[in-house]
């Protein structure tokens, strides 16, 4: 197996990602405005700076560990085992996961203009179809009833005003009842 497919290599990538984030966060703290006043002993940048340095230190530790493992790896090591894939071309599961993420983004985008109930119904029906649910009646019942009941519960019992978008008439109807 290629070393680039091992857990050790995945850790190496992870350490670089978090290290970069830590570095960026640290650099940003130097642009924070300073607080005035004689009684200010801890500037707003202090706490984030400590945290970003902490993130950098442990990312560096993971980086060193990973490089060490990659250089002296034995086949029975846990770190020599294959890491999970995010290759959506080869792995249908990853592709499906990405499709769920895309549907979740659609949920966010459609939340206000289309309303919660309609967006939730469309997204949940799409997920059910994606994972192989084929019973049309069950798909319709679950995707319509669950968002509707949740909306009613939140709106009437918990007084949470949820966007209804194109189904605004439902709220007017419930208000009249």
């Amino acid at each position: 197996m290629k070393k680039t497919q091992t857990k050790a290599f995945a850790n190496l990538v992870g350490s670089i990602v978090f290290g970069t984030l830590g570095l960026w966060a640290l650099v940003q703290t130097y642009s924070f405005q300073e607080a005035g006043g004689a009684t200010t002993y801890v500037q707003p940048a202090v706490f984030p700076r400590i945290m970003s340095i902490g993130l950098l230190i442990f990312s560096a530790a993971l980086l060193i560990q990973s490089v060490w493992k990659l250089l002296r790896m034995k086949p029975e090591d846990d770190m020599a085992q294959p890491a999970e894939s995010i290759n959506f071309v080869k792995d249908k599961g990853v592709l499906a996961g990405l499709a769920v993420i895309a549907l979740c983004i659609l949920f966010v985008v459609g939340f206000e203009p289309l309303g919660y109930v309609l967006t939730a119904a469309l997204v949940s029906a799409a997920i059910m179809l994606l994972i192989g649910k084929r019973n049309a009646l069950q798909i319709i019942l679950v995707s319509v009833l669950v968002p509707l009941v949740m909306w009613l519960l939140f709106y009437k019992l918990l007084a949470v005003n949820i966007p209804m978008g194109v189904l605004q008439f439902l709220r007017d109807l419930v208000d009249k009842i």
């Binding site: 997204v123 059910m128 069950q138 679950v142 669950v146 939140f154 949820i162």
Partner: peptide
């Protein structure tokens, strides 16, 4: 599970909004 996952998503998103 094919029905449970969408239900959890719908409830969770509403919880996050509320």
């Amino acid at each position: 599970k094919k029905m449970l996952y969408p239900i959890i998503l719908v409830v969770s998103i509403l919880g996050a909004f509320s």
